[in-house]
Design a protein around this nucleic acid. Structure first.
Lengths: 168, 168
DNA sequence: TCGTTCGTTCGGAGTGAGCCGAACAAACAG
DNA sequence: CTGTTTGTTCGGCTCACTCCGAACGAACGA
């Protein structure tokens, strides 16, 4: 088993992370940068990430900022108090994915609910089919909001267990 | 309460649907077209959708095709056996959202799992940190797959109830 | 049969996002 | 103080995506 085999296997997983990133609304570069950090033994600086990924320094800088903001990677000032900044990956990706979810889906749900509520406030209850359909929408979105809120407190294993053991 | 008030309220909700569409990986036009159909009393043909939305005929044609493919709207040949095609919205959006979810997330999870499994098959068990980290990834993704699979059989209310009543 | 209406397909314009390179600011080494 | 290294910011390029209009094929009515 050679070093080559290892890096091929690693590369394969990183490529799938690139693809996953797109699904979660991030760029491919974000997926690769996260992947490199995920497998890295030690924290990496921006020049090292440039070396590893082939992306431009500016790209690394921008992407690491957004990844840090979402909580997928951590930024640490170098141990020696040096200038260099080091990044490590959050390896419990479940929490990170939840955060991304909160950022995207929950925010969207809130926005939609506000729009629905404002529309309902404007319409009397007997306003016909419009009001009925808006009410249906609101009920579904309230369920959705509650689901997302509750799910954010679960670990993956707990969530799985909750669904498996639920008896209708 | 005027017709104007009704249409203003409707417009507000449709605008939020436009925005939601982007979050779910669809175009704004898809959000509007779905919204118009959602509130429409009767099924609408392409020319009528052109009239209602202001989009070009070709846009309507393309977008309705993708919306039909994901199951957010239904295509029906006209009653009279006529040439005209009519579209209606799936109003139980929960099912539609689940479908979109299946299309995007579940597919992505499967792809990632395959990549991980191929990588693991190539690596012996004692391959060091690479193998460990890949194994962690696999476990999380297996949970994820199970969660998505289970959740696809739940209604929104059931899912909400399952989470609310789960006792750790 | 001819004109009309409906729906799809194709090429092109406009737009936004991702990425790059250059320029810059800040902090260190010598 | 000077040169070097690190990280950020800015303008521009490219590519993909959305949407449009035009052209086309197919089905109907007269």
């Amino acid at each position: 088993m050679s070093e080559d085999d290892r890096s091929v296997a690693r590369e394969r997983v990183i490529e799938s992370m690139e693809q996953s990133a797109e699904v979660y609304g991030l760029s491919r570069s974000a997926g690769r940068i996260y992947g490199v950090l995920y497998f890295s033994e030690a924290p990496l600086s921006i020049p090292e990430l440039v070396e590893e990924t082939g992306y431009a320094k500016s790209t690394i800088s921008n992407v690491t900022r957004t990844l840090t903001r979402i909580g997928l990677i951590y930024r640490r000032s170098s141990e020696g108090g040096g200038r260099r900044v080091h990044y490590t990956a959050e390896r419990e990706i479940w929490f990170s994915l939840q955060d991304v979810f909160q950022q995207y889906v929950h925010r969207e749900i809130q926005t939609t609910l506000r729009a629905i509520q404002r529309a309902e406030a404007q319409l009397p209850d007997d306003a016909g089919t419009e009001a009925e359909r808006i009410e249906e929408l609101r009920e579904t979105y309230e369920d959705l909001r509650e689901i997302v809120t509750l799910a954010s407190d679960f670990t993956a294993a707990e969530l799985r267990d909750a669904l498996e053991s639920y008896d209708r």
